[in-house]
Design a protein around this nucleic acid. Structure first.
Length: 349
DNA sequence: TAGGCGTGGGG
DNA sequence: TCCCCAAGCCT
């Protein structure tokens, strides 16, 4: 077991990537990087990290920002509750902890958006505390090497891997150890078709010896996707369009979008044209076109959507909740990718 | 506790 | 095209 770990540490010294958040022990920067990298690839998250640190160099800068500003910076990354919790926690630390990051695992865990993995990552990398950061990489590496077939998304499985990881980190440099195991999972012990001929521990790996690489780790749950039908209205008076803020507990909370008609089923173009246009009072408008369908896929939903392009005069009668925006300012608002792609199609951004 | 919560890349 | 996945957390 000790040679397993020392082999991975040795592998890490040779193969580690030079990532921007690896040259710091600043808990703020480590925290930002860990939140961005939750369920997110390094290739996708790195530029967001650099922009985030540049825009908000310290936790005080972040705490003083508006949530809209934070969401705009987060636009395109997904899982937007991460951004909302990040901002909320920055305010908590600044206003209730004297702008000092908690320095122990238990207090880190109390913060919004920081769970067992992230608390361990910050505790180990910023404060040299021996908490194992058990993420998807670690589940994969340990399940394969030790031949553990307990589902990683069961409570029993989590407990089992957690306990094993706690034993493995004893008397190791915590931050380096955690990053070594994660990096090994990310680069060498990859989910699909790992090149075991390059693996330093292949000769003692249970999954390799028993040809179970593709079977491990075991996951029990499969998320089912539901279908939704979104019809967006681009109401254009020549200079302005209208947008709306999503505030309910649903996807894309607190992001902006175009006026939306959601239907439980698909609506034909003929029907759309005959329907009352939501938010517009009266009949003083012209439906110019209904776009081709666009399918937007989330982890748990498939959204079938179309855009209805509507020309109006500047004296159009619009109901209250909508925000009237000059077209040249539209990029100031955080919107989901689906809406941004409609904006691109219609040359608004 | 099981399901909700995004996006983009790769096989 | 489809499916799985990527440094999880919240409720």
């Amino acid at each position: 077991m000790d040679s397993f770990i020392s082999s991975l540490h040795q592998w890490y010294r040779i193969n580690k990537r030079d990532l921007p958040w690896r040259n710091t022990q600043d808990p703020y920067q480590i925290w930002i990087s860990e939140i961005i990298l939750q369920q997110t690839r390094i290739a996708q998250g790195t530029n967001y990290y650099l922009r985030f640190i540049h825009t908000f160099p310290t936790i005080v800068h972040l705490a003083e920002a508006n949530e809209d500003e934070v969401l705009k910076l987060w636009q395109g990354l997904g899982y937007y509750s991460r951004a909302r919790n990040l901002h909320s926690t920055a305010k908590t630390i600044v206003h209730s902890h004297g702008a000092k990051f908690p320095t122990n695992y238990t207090d880190l865990l109390k913060l919004k958006g920081i769970g067992p993995y992230t608390a361990a990552a910050i505790a180990s990398m910023a404060f040299d505390l021996p908490y194992p950061a058990v993420d998807g990489n670690i589940y994969r590496v340990l399940s394969r090497y030790f031949g553990i077939a307990t589902p990683i998304d069961s409570s029993g499985g989590k407990k089992q891997f957690q306990q094993l990881a706690e034993e493995l980190i004893i008397n190791k440099p915590p931050g380096m150890h955690n990053q070594a195991l994660m990096e090994f999972g990310a680069l060498q012990c990859v989910p699909k078709s790992p090149d075991c001929s390059l693996c330093p521990v292949a000769d003692t790996c249970f999954a390799k010896l028993n040809q179970l690489i593709e079977q491990l780790p075991v996951k029990s749950k499969k998320t089912k996707q539901s279908k939704r039908y979104f019809y967006y209205y681009l109401i254009d008076d020549g200079t302005h369009i209208y947008i709306n803020k999503r505030t309910s507990n649903d996807i894309w909370k607190n992001l902006h979008e175009l006026p939306l008609l959601e239907s439980p089923h698909e609506i034909s173009d003929e029907e759309i044209i005959q329907k009352k246009v939501p938010y517009i009072n009266g009949t003083n408008f012209n439906i110019k076109l209904v776009s081709s369908p666009k399918k937007h896929i989330l982890s748990h939903q498939v959204i079938h959507s179309k855009l209805i392009y509507i020309e109006v005069n500047t004296d159009v009668d619009i109901s209250k909740p909508l925000i009237r925006v000059n077209k040249k300012d539209i990029s100031k608002f955080a919107v989901p990718r689906l809406v941004e792609q409609f904006f691109e199609t219609f040359n608004l951004v």
